[in-house]
């Protein structure tokens, strides 16, 4: 252990620093929460769109598929920078958090569209047929039959995705979003030992991610009961 670290500890463990880190951690949480909520809504819409039939919606279906396939192949950092620079073209100042949230949402929409697609596909086609012959519309079939059966398949991976994004949003620090990693860098720049700053940041990520992982596992067991529950 390098010199001075032990002596630094009292100076590092202040209410001020703790509050600074915790506030940043809440932004990390908020960023992934926004991404997951937008992702499940927009991604869900794309997944549903891809289930439609008929040529009228064919171009939109194609766009949806393209979006999902392409955005899952671009690194988050690149999407982030693209959003960062693209929003600056408009000439007005967008809050950094909003830039982070847009980038997270763009990516999460693609991933969650895929998760919802798999969930919809897990519902047997005969359920659609049964509904069709009783004159259910597309939307009625989704609402009354398919979604009630698919949500328990969607929930565990979607939750896992939320936890994954908790960590991936660390990259938002690169465009200046004051989330947890950025806060760690800031403290590092203020002269605290990196063992302390990044160590604390790692521990805080762990403190968010690990309990949620355990919760996710409980959730999985809970919803893995028969289809109808």
């Amino acid at each position: 252990m390098p010199h001075g670290v032990i002596e630094q500890i009292p100076r590092f463990l202040t209410w001020y620093n703790a509050a600074f880190l915790l506030r940043a951690a809440s932004f990390t949480l908020a960023l992934s929460a926004v991404g997951s909520v937008v992702g499940i809504l927009a991604g869900g819409a794309i997944a549903v769109l891809r289930r439609t039939r008929g040529w009228a919606l064919a171009p939109l279906r194609g766009l949806g598929t393209l979006y999902v396939e392409l955005f899952r192949r671009i690194p988050f950092l690149v999407t982030l920078l693209l959003v960062f620079y693209a929003t600056q073209l408009g000439g007005y100042d967008m809050p950094l958090f909003a830039i982070g949230a847009i980038a997270v949402s763009l990516i999460s929409t693609a991933y969650l569209a895929e998760i919802v697609r798999a969930g919809l596909a897990s519902v047997h086609p005969n359920q659609w047929h049964s509904a069709a012959v009783a004159n259910f519309s597309f939307m009625q079939t989704l609402r009354l039959v398919v979604i009630p059966q698919a949500w328990s398949v969607v929930l565990p991976p979607a939750f896992g995705f939320f936890i994954m994004f908790l960590k991936d949003t660390a990259l938002a620090s690169q465009v200046g979003v004051v989330e947890l990693t950025y806060a760690g860098k800031t403290l590092n720049n203020r002269g605290f030992a990196p063992v302390l700053t990044f160590g604390a940041v790692l521990l805080l990520y762990f403190a968010m991610s690990y309990p949620l992982t355990l919760l996710g596992r409980r959730l999985e067991v809970l919803v893995a009961r028969p289809r109808h529950r």
Binding site: K167, A170, P194, F198, L202, Y205, F206, Y210, T213
Partner: peptide
């Protein structure tokens, strides 16, 4: 349960 980016920073 921790970000790769921060692991590398560390």
């Amino acid at each position: 349960n921790t970000p790769q980016l921060v692991q590398i920073y560390f």
